[in-house]
Structures are given as structure tokens and as C-alpha cells.
Amino acid sequence: MNVRRSAPAVALATAVACFVSPASATREIVVPSRVQVVATEFQLALSRRTIKSGRAVVELVNYGEDDHDLRMLRLARGAKMLKIRTVLPGDDAQLRATLAPGKFVLWCSIADHRKLGMEARLTVTKRT
């Protein structure tokens, strides 16, 4: 299913985007923390349970059969909800954010998926 939808992007990427001239200047490299969340029916599996605070990339991969999305909330008063839009089966999407240390809860907000088990915890520890 994802193939058909992502194909235009593929073709454009190979045909057009790669003909943009390369950036030659070297910039300071910031290595973000990364975690991959694999969604299936009805579970979320994390590539690691703990990541460092600061700049982070959270990736949602949908290896299931239904659509899934991701909500992510730090368990603290007034924390802002982080979101990854609906990801089609076979597809993926990334969220770039600056994460404060703490415990986060992650879930899929589609239909009753959270109740069925699509929820997980992530610990963010202070980057030293």
C-alpha cells in the first residue's frame, strides 16, 4: 500500500531533487538522540528505552496493516503534546523535537488502538 503512495516522491526524488547542486560548506554537526518506534497491531516497540535529552529524532515505522499515528507526552504538568501524523502501512515518519529529561508516554491515538495495547514508555535522561 505504501508503495503506490510513496512512488511519486521516489520518482521526483530521483529525477529532480538530486539535481540540486550539493552543499559544500561544512556546518557544525549536531548528533541528535534517536529512537525508532515500530507500530503493529496492537503494539508499539521501541528501539531503545532510554535516550538522552536535547535534540532528538523520533521515528514511527508502521509495519502493521492499519493506519497508525504517534502521540508523545512528558509526564509533567503543562508538557506539550508531540505528534506524528497518521502513517500508512509500510510507511514511516519522523518527529524532530527538543526533549527535556523525564518520563514520556507514547501511544497511537487512532480509534481504540491505545486501549488495545499501543502504548509505551520512554525515559529521557539528562545529556551530560
Binding site: 500500500m1 505504501n2 508503495v3 510513496s6 512512488a7 521516489v10 520518482a11 496493516e65 502501512p89 509500510g90
Partner: peptide, 19 residues
């Protein structure tokens, strides 16, 4: 197998090569 069928799911990450 999807519940209740004898059917395996079809590949959804097929080759995208057929340009």
C-alpha cells in the same frame, strides 16, 4: 495470518522499481 482466514498478507513493500 489475518485472523480467521487462510490468507497471508500480501507484500506491501514491493519493489518500487517499475518506473
Amino acid at each position: 495470518l489475518p485472523a480467521g482466514t487462510g490468507l497471508s498478507r500480501r507484500s506491501f513493500i514491493a519493489r518500487t522499481a517499475g518506473l
